[in-house]
Design a binder for these strands. Structure first.
Lengths: 238, 238
DNA sequence: AGGGACACGTGAACC
DNA sequence: TGGTTCACGTGTCCC
């Protein structure tokens, strides 16, 4: 079935003069649109038709692309047959929120790496006597070869006193947690030294993270489904 | 800006006679559409305009609804600014798949209730000597008051030998697992008795589940976000 | 220019 | 019938 049309023309269309009626939404009446009546008279009719045709075909392809994604979403959302587009999208919004919330709950209660790359560095205790601090640094990312040795090297280069390190995996995701104290350094002001340490830890971990991303992000293997972060990158360092 | 138009009419539109050019996509040429030329002459022009207006307004509202959902999806998907609609939907598909997969991994590795209501009843061992069987039955659903006492009553009514029961919660979701054996009943054929027991357990648990749904499903409190099942209902009893 | 993306109004189909 | 949903071609803006 072909519902397409190129507008409704008069017999005198060939002269390039078109008079049209336009619906004025505010006033709700038909209005003669007399502006821009001369319709590019210099252009050949054939070219115009070709352009219009390719335009409508491109638009059809665009619609197909969007609708294809909508129908795979439909297959992902339970009992979404017979839903119209808006209702389907509403359910998808709901489902994504729900799944994210569950994922957050899970990761809070259990020690599980999630799908968001994440680096966290925090001070968890302070020794009032000698001024040393207890830190907790964690990195969550896709596993890759040499990840662990890179992390080990990173920790060593920071000159900290490693107290505990944990590792856990889920699928191809891995999460590492390090607990450590700073080495005592009476020369510098403690607060400043702490800030420097924290930021250098973040920076070092970020390098490790970037190396992971460099391996996976633009590898462009169509078979390897790209992992999507669950959270905004703005929350990476919160 | 008002881009709307009611087609492009000739001066003789008032007579109800319209000649139009139609793009034939297959042949790629303009064709005079001379069929259906008489345009409901009996209808007053005012009515037609009013209908057309309400039609276009309804369509605009529909578009707004869809686009509103798309933009909230955009806020849920990281770095989706500047993505066009198709790309955004592709990312949403990706994210939903990813989150579901993670949820499945998590629930497989840990004993965690998920967002899908689920009843599982299975035979996990069989005693070759006396013909008793070891069963494992689990129910996962939204928590409600009296859920536990209902489940207890259900188990009692089944006349089984309860060996172990576990409960775990995540958010407002709760999962109960019962391990039990059947009571020895030499009268009936064992295989038949087992089937009856399994199906009566499923039925009893289903009643409990239905009671949960009755409370939450159509409560229509707009503040209470409705939970969406992660899986097709077809997988409920797999 | 020329192609992509979007919003628009419209015809058709379904209740 | 009116109301609603969808696909379509088109105008317009932006690169």
């Amino acid at each position: 079935m072909n519902c397409g049309n190129l507008g409704e023309f008069c017999e005198n269309e060939a002269k390039g003069v078109v008079q049209s009626l336009v619906l004025d939404s505010e006033k709700g009446e038909l209005v003669k649109a007399s502006g821009r009546v001369e319709k590019k008279v210099g252009k050949s009719e054939g070219k115009t038709i070709a352009a219009l045709k390719s335009h409508s075909e491109a638009e059809r392809r665009r619609r197909q692309r969007i609708n294809a994604h909508l129908s795979t979403l439909r297959s992902l959302v339970p009992s979404s047959d017979k839903m119209d587009k808006a209702a389907l999208l509403a359910q998808v919004v709901c489902q994504v929120k729900q799944l994210k919330e569950t994922a957050t709950h899970v990761s809070e209660r259990f020690f599980i790496p999630l799908d968001s790359d994440e680096i966290k560095v925090e001070t968890i205790a302070e020794n009032a006597i000698d001024g040393t601090c207890l830190y907790r640094a964690s990195i969550c990312c896709e596993y890759r070869t040499d990840l662990l040795s890179d992390l080990k090297e990173t920790i060593n280069s920071l000159h900290v006193n490693l107290i505990k390190s944990e590792i856990s995996t889920l699928g191809s995701r891995v999460k590492n947690v390090f607990v450590f104290t700073n080495l005592i350094d009476g020369d510098r002001a403690n607060t400043e030294a702490r800030q420097i340490l924290l930021s250098s830890i973040r920076q070092a971990f970020s390098s490790v993270l970037d190396k992971v991303s460099a391996f996976s992000e633009y590898s462009a293997y169509p078979n390897k489904r790209q992992r999507i972060s669950c959270f905004d990158s703005s929350s990476l360092f919160r």
